[in-house]
Design a protein around this nucleic acid. Sequence first.
DNA 1: CACGGAGATCGAAACGTTTCAAGCTGCGGT
DNA 2: ACCGCAGCTTGAAACGTTTCGATCTCCGTG
Lengths: 341, 341
Amino acid sequence: MSRPGIRQVAARAGVAVGTVSAYLNHPDRVSAERARRIAEAIDELGFVPSSAGRQLRLGVSSLIGYLSPDVSNPHFSEIAQEVEYRAERLGMTVFFAHSHGDREREDAYLEAFEQRQVRGILVSSFQPIEARLAAMRERGTPSVLVGRRACDELQPSVSIDDVSGGRQAGEHLIANGCRSLAFVGGPLPVQQVADRLDGMRTAAVAASIDPPDVIEVAERSIAVGRAVGAGLAARPAAERPDGVFAANDVLALGLLQALVAGGVSVPGEVALVGYDDNEFAEASLIPLTSVRARHDDFGAAAVDLLFEAIEHGTGPRADGATSQRVYEPELIVRESSRRAH
Amino acid sequence: MSRPGIRQVAARAGVAVGTVSAYLNHPDRVSAERARRIAEAIDELGFVPSSAGRQLRLGVSSLIGYLSPDVSNPHFSEIAQEVEYRAERLGMTVFFAHSHGDREREDAYLEAFEQRQVRGILVSSFQPIEARLAAMRERGTPSVLVGRRACDELQPSVSIDDVSGGRQAGEHLIANGCRSLAFVGGPLPVQQVADRLDGMRTAAVAASIDPPDVIEVAERSIAVGRAVGAGLAARPAAERPDGVFAANDVLALGLLQALVAGGVSVPGEVALVGYDDNEFAEASLIPLTSVRARHDDFGAAAVDLLFEAIEHGTGPRADGATSQRVYEPELIVRESSRRAH
DNA sequence: CACGGAGATCGAAACGTTTCAAGCTGCGGT
DNA sequence: ACCGCAGCTTGAAACGTTTCGATCTCCGTG
């Protein structure tokens, strides 16, 4: 007793299959009488149209794929939500997949997307991935790199100027009287992390103070932040940085907790700045200063850019412009770094 | 220049289409020589198998659907992650969709799942939805209700005993000397919320103290928690409850921030307990006491139950047992409610 | 009354895959 | 030299849909 198809519906309603198809896709083209009979048949049979059949015939789906590292980081879940809203308004469904930073999973999902004939793909990744995206573009599936600026001119991307974000964080700390800076983040090969550090270094150089101490970590999680924070709290005050910039809010929140638990006053003894400005940064008991990546437009812009790529085809843009949007981040100053001079 | 199909590959490799199919699905059944030729052809043509064609022929996909209200709540994203891991190990891909509490969206996604012929569906919802799930079960798509115990015997579910959780929270507050309780949560028609409140009431009755003051809210978010917290902080100390139980960690974190900002000492003047034990509850500067819903097994159990339903068919279970797992929650005591007596 | 046109309906073909009965090949045993 | 068997290989059929030229019906016009 396999599920009924459009044929069974047609037979039951006493009409041709083409008519049933018309009813489903262009209800206005079929007479009221038949529409009624068809609706009845569908109901009685419990007919559900098969998207596989439809997709096979049409050659495309109404799916867009979204590959992100990790939805448990509020930064990504906030973007995901926005993407879903925007795509929905454009009649598309989003197929979410999470790589958890694993390269194999990334590959597997990208391939799955292609097999499903998604119309386009949104990709957030901490790994070099442009070559793979270029190959998919060749085969007709466009993509937008989210969160990092693409090197290849032909690869659309939506990103934050992380160097600028890092510089703002650094300048802010310095302006608040910090002279002994530290950067907590990693792995350093990750472009976004490296850029943020670079920006901070630039600020230090400009102010002619020592470059930040780099505390590299393998993972940006609360637990790791906590561990690093405990280490800092354990140092004698003289050997402790007085201004810390974390690559990430999640990391920063862990740091903050361990510092305070270790008896270090924030922002008094250590001023702290995070990155992403996620929801929980603002909700902390000592609200966290953070570099905001304008979430409001970010996900939506990615979707829009993807649609542009879908329309324009996958070649270079006719107008020669590159489709790479870079947002200027904004420093949101809160208590964790606000110091009386 | 449509994408090449298995036929073009066969032609190019000089073999029959059946052989290419065999190569793709049972590589051991084709001779080394042909395998080589086919691999070559696939490479040259950039062939990507169409999952639509495959699914059409097979009649099933390797998808399971997961409908949840909102991935920006860490509670759900933690479950989602677990579900994805478990499903992956079983060779399934998870199709995520988010209802954002909207009934229409819920409907639309459930229908989309069915059209895609998912093997089964995981559903978290705050609305009554069992009737719809029953209809889908009739048509051959099993589901597992996640987070709330199903009323219908035939509907598998994985849930937490929310009444017990509420009772534990209440008893704990009382044991810590609180005599004037309050419950913050809502909307009350939501089963999970009502159950938690019920449990707390039970505890109050058992201890012969006044039942909790109920502060109903329309939405469980940080912002709402903050607003309620500000309201409490503004009251004269005598009119303020000394033990507050929030339906949700997100809500609790908002409350906590506003209380402290309003000069109310936590846990000194107000002891606070949340629910879900999400990652950020533990990471708060005043770590939040919370009722933990054993995330470790939760998502995995849901997937396992779904698979059982898929195997067993969609009728009542042969052994007559109902497939409803109820977990006993565990109170994790942290500083936000720990009081010196 | 014949004709034309508009609008609704029909039904075969095609999309890309897997299955499976049937055919083919080569080898070992008698 | 023949048979039988095992293992590869073949290719047609079927899955459920949409498209589109052909057909049919009906009505108004000349």
